[in-house]
Design a protein around this nucleic acid. Structure first.
Lengths: 183, 183
DNA sequence: ACGTCATATAGGACTTGTCCTATATTCAGT
DNA sequence: ACTGAATATAGGACAAGTCCTATATGACGT
């Protein structure tokens, strides 16, 4: 249940409302940890019930009251324990690879189309990440460690997006040869 | 529910039992689609109830009877529809990036340790994939499209593993500088 | 002798995440 | 005038995946 830890991590930086958390996720962590709005609030409720965070209600007249969450000591401990815990084995799912694995019945031309679609998506992602990166500080060595690490997750996304494009291009070239030699 | 489609994809290649499916997943698709044994059988049941596959019971005396599943026409249609459907937007979760994002409280030395752990795991994965790749045919251009695509998923894993290692090394170097300049 | 692995299937309990809806107001664009 | 987005929280229903256990037996190593 990593969303809990992510929530603790954000709240550790600064007390936040659920709404602000949602924004924080979608602007800075969306590419490696999409967070459902509904689940966010549920996670906050549970974290409070478990004594990891506390909330103070900020009354508003025109809109629903804001609930500002801040980290409690047990929450800080849970966060630190998570950071220090052994890395879990990587078992991520790659729907695109699953599809490609079984895509032979599309024929060579169909597969190439699939690769092109994927390539477009990868280029789009890379463009988005590039834009985010260029709006970040130019000299990461002068910033805090926290900022540096947050920037590093962006770099990770860019590196993998580029790797994906490279792999797609190579595969595409192979399939083009394959197609021609089969005719 | 992509596991269903994966199951259809495997069964399309050759009629299989749930047990054999589990093996097929763990030997060829584990690195991009881990399949829980329990969920596999449930998926097969549902696929049969939905008329996508049919099973014939092969009686055995010493062990539980085998249930051999084969693809029915509606299953083939569902498989083809899935293959031709638009690519879903990529929203994979990267627990390691999440951790790194919030890892500043570990300090520079602690983060470097984290990176080293991750590097070890990436190298291990790459080694495994390399071993799988070298046990595959040397000349993929001479094989069928299906085999070629299956090999390509392996190549994808290797490409991304290498990209991960590159990124980790760069970040590590930056943090080492950072650490030294801070002292 | 004893544990453990391979074969083969299956259910229960649970967690996590997704999607949709509800509520209530203000502000900006068309 | 009307529509939609932003603010702000929350519940219901459901899908997907994880973990553990149960059953039954032969083979293999120590």
């Amino acid at each position: 249940m990593s969303l809990l830890h992510a929530v603790l991590g954000f709240v550790a930086i600064q007390p936040m409302t659920g709404y602000e958390l949602g924004k924080a996720f979608s602007t800075t962590a969306a590419h490696f940890w999409p967070a459902d709005q509904s689940q966010l609030y549920r996670t906050l409720h549970r974290a409070e019930a478990d004594g990891l965070v506390e909330s103070t209600t900020v009354e508003q007249t025109t809109r629903p009251d804001r609930r500002l969450y801040s980290l409690l000591d047990p929450g800080r401990e849970a966060l630190d324990a998570w950071l220090a815990s052994p890395l879990e084995p990587d078992n991520s799912r790659e729907p695109f690879l699953l599809r490609l694995f079984f895509a032979a019945s599309l024929g060579t031309a169909g597969v190439i189309e699939l690769l092109d679609q994927r390539r477009s998506a990868a280029v789009e992602l890379l463009t988005t990440l590039d834009a985010l990166a260029s709006s970040a500080p130019q000299k990461p060595s002068k910033t805090t460690l926290a900022i540096h690490l947050q920037y590093a997750t962006l770099e990770s996304g860019r590196t993998h997006a580029r790797a994906e494009i490279t792999w797609l291009d190579e595969l595409r070239a192979q399939l083009t040869d394959y197609k021609e030699s089969a005719q």
